[in-house]
Amino acid sequence: MTLLSVRKVYQGIADRRQMFRMFDRHAQRPNRWETDDSALYRGEWFEIGEPEYSHMFELLPPLWMRADMFAMREYLTGSITGIFFTLKIDSARRYFHGYCDLADKGSPDRMQRAIIDRECRPVKAMTREERLEHIWSSTHDDYRGYAGERWPAHLRGARTVLFYAGQHGTVFKLLDQLTDAEISAKLPVHLRYLPEQHAA
């Protein structure tokens, strides 16, 4: 899967448990820490609630802050760190977390604009990529993973999810090769029938 530069990875508002799970959605990746995995995280964002935003603000002194955002002091990998946003969208104050590359000074502002643009759409819709990212984010670690030695060499390291395959039982399938019907089956009911938004 080609990672979009700025991408929503969870639909809805993440509670504290889900927020902490998504801080490292790629914890099971093979060869963790052996390569620069910045591209996995750079540009990921999701919505959180005000209590989660306040908790993170009080956890450690921020690296820097502005009226509408602050940066975590600890870096995740390389120059990637978490940025927390307070944004007014449709007259409501909302809160978001995203991973920005601070080596690129404009990264937080671009992410802020992308979040506002995404959340101000008049019609609720999801792209195929957003559907896949939501499945990955909401699937328990025991039911997702990465293609290993039993997969052809060119597929090793690709993300997989456990899927019920009828008479064949449960099998791991490549996340980015799920059919529309399989994606629908893995999504919660309230997200299954949203229209598809084509990526810009």
Rank of each mutant, 00 (worst) to 15 (best):
E34W: 03
T127M: 13
D180K: 12
M19E: 00
P30T: 07
P61Y: 07
E52C: 04
K105Y: 11
M56P: 05
H140G: 07
D117K: 15
L175E: 01
M69K: 11
R25E: 02
F85E: 04
S79Q: 03
L155Q: 12
E130G: 03
Y193V: 02
P152E: 10
W64R: 14
L187K: 10
H198N: 02
H97S: 11
G43N: 00
R144P: 09
D142R: 14
G98K: 09
A181F: 08
R121D: 00
L194Q: 06
H134L: 04
R94F: 06
H154V: 09
C100L: 12
Q177R: 13
R131P: 13
F57Q: 10
I183W: 11
G43V: 11
H168R: 13
T170K: 11
E47R: 09
M19R: 09
G82F: 04
F85I: 09
E119Y: 13
F163S: 07
F70V: 10
T170G: 09
S107F: 12
S38V: 03
H140S: 13
M111D: 06
A199G: 01
R25G: 05
L87K: 07
I13D: 01
S184V: 11
D68K: 08
H168K: 05
G43K: 04
M22L: 04
K124M: 10
A114G: 05
R156E: 06
P108S: 02
F84T: 11
H198W: 01
A200M: 00
L63G: 03
P51S: 08
A114M: 14
Q167P: 02
D24F: 02
P152N: 12
T160C: 15
L87P: 06
V171I: 11
V123P: 03
K105T: 15
H140Y: 05
R113V: 10
L40K: 09
I183S: 08
L155V: 04
L40G: 06
C100T: 14
D117S: 15
A158D: 08
A199S: 07
E196C: 02
E47G: 05
R150S: 13
G43C: 08
W45G: 01
D24L: 04
D176L: 02
A71G: 12
I89T: 02
M1S: 13
M1P: 14
D90E: 15
W45P: 14
D176I: 06
Q28V: 04
P122C: 15
R32W: 01
A181V: 08
L76Q: 11
Y164C: 00
F23N: 01
A153W: 05
V189S: 07
A27V: 04
L174C: 00
I48Y: 12
E52Y: 01
W64L: 15
F70D: 00
T2Y: 01
R94L: 12
A14L: 01
S107H: 15
S54E: 08
R21N: 00
E52V: 03
E74Q: 10
V189C: 03
F84I: 13
G49S: 15
F85P: 12
E58M: 13
P61W: 10
L194F: 07
T160W: 07
D141Q: 12
R66Y: 05
R118H: 15
K124F: 06
G98Q: 14
I89L: 12
D101H: 14
Y10I: 01
H198K: 06
S91K: 13
F20Q: 01
P195R: 06
E196W: 02
D37L: 08
V123Y: 13
E44S: 14
K173V: 10
Q11N: 07
R159M: 15
R7K: 07
T170I: 03
I48V: 09
Q167H: 00
F96N: 00
